[in-house]
């Protein structure tokens, strides 16, 4: 075991866990207080958009849509921080790396699909086909 000890100390030198076997993962699990803060925030961030839609508070649907999407994005981040305990340090930063990579792919997939298909719909309107023979 003494041969192991030196390499283990080198490998996990940055970890300041008093008892590494207690969790074995280097994750922060939060406290009752952080869970309650996260829950309170998510209740507020859910209640407001539901109220906005059910009570017809904002007349302009474009503004209402943007506001609701804004609340959704903020709530997703609240959940990632308070419930999934995401931070830049867990697993040596790889959790955050994987998440950032995923978010980039999601943004490309969503914005790309919507953008392309919106233009496809517009261009496929019958009025836009000047000479049907050109399509063949």
């Amino acid at each position: 075991m003494s041969a192991h000890t030196s390499t283990d100390t080198l490998a996990s030198g940055t970890h300041a866990h008093p008892n590494p076997d207690a969790h074995g993962d280097g994750h922060d699990h939060g406290t009752r207080r952080t869970y309650l803060i996260g829950f309170a925030l998510s209740v507020i961030l859910t209640a407001i958009p539901f109220w906005l839609v059910m009570g017809d508070v904002i007349a302009d649907t474009t503004i209402a849509t943007l506001v609701i999407m804004g609340f959704g994005v903020v709530q997703i981040f609240v959940h990632m921080v308070y419930f999934l305990h995401m931070n830049t340090k867990s697993e040596g930063g790889w959790t955050m790396m994987a998440a950032i990579f995923t978010i980039i792919i999601i943004v490309i997939a969503l914005s790309g699909s919507l953008w392309v298909m919106f233009h496809l719909n517009t261009n496929m309107m019958p009025g836009h086909i000047m000479n049907p023979a050109d399509l063949i």
């Binding site: 859910t46 958009p49 839609v53 209402a64 609701i68 999407m69 609340f71 959704g72 997703i76």
Partner: peptide, 16 residues
């Protein structure tokens, strides 16, 4: 987290 996306995009934005 996924459900936040669903109720925002499908239900709330669907009603608008």
């Amino acid at each position: 987290v996924i459900w936040i996306g669903v109720f925002t995009v499908v239900y709330l934005m669907g009603m608008l």
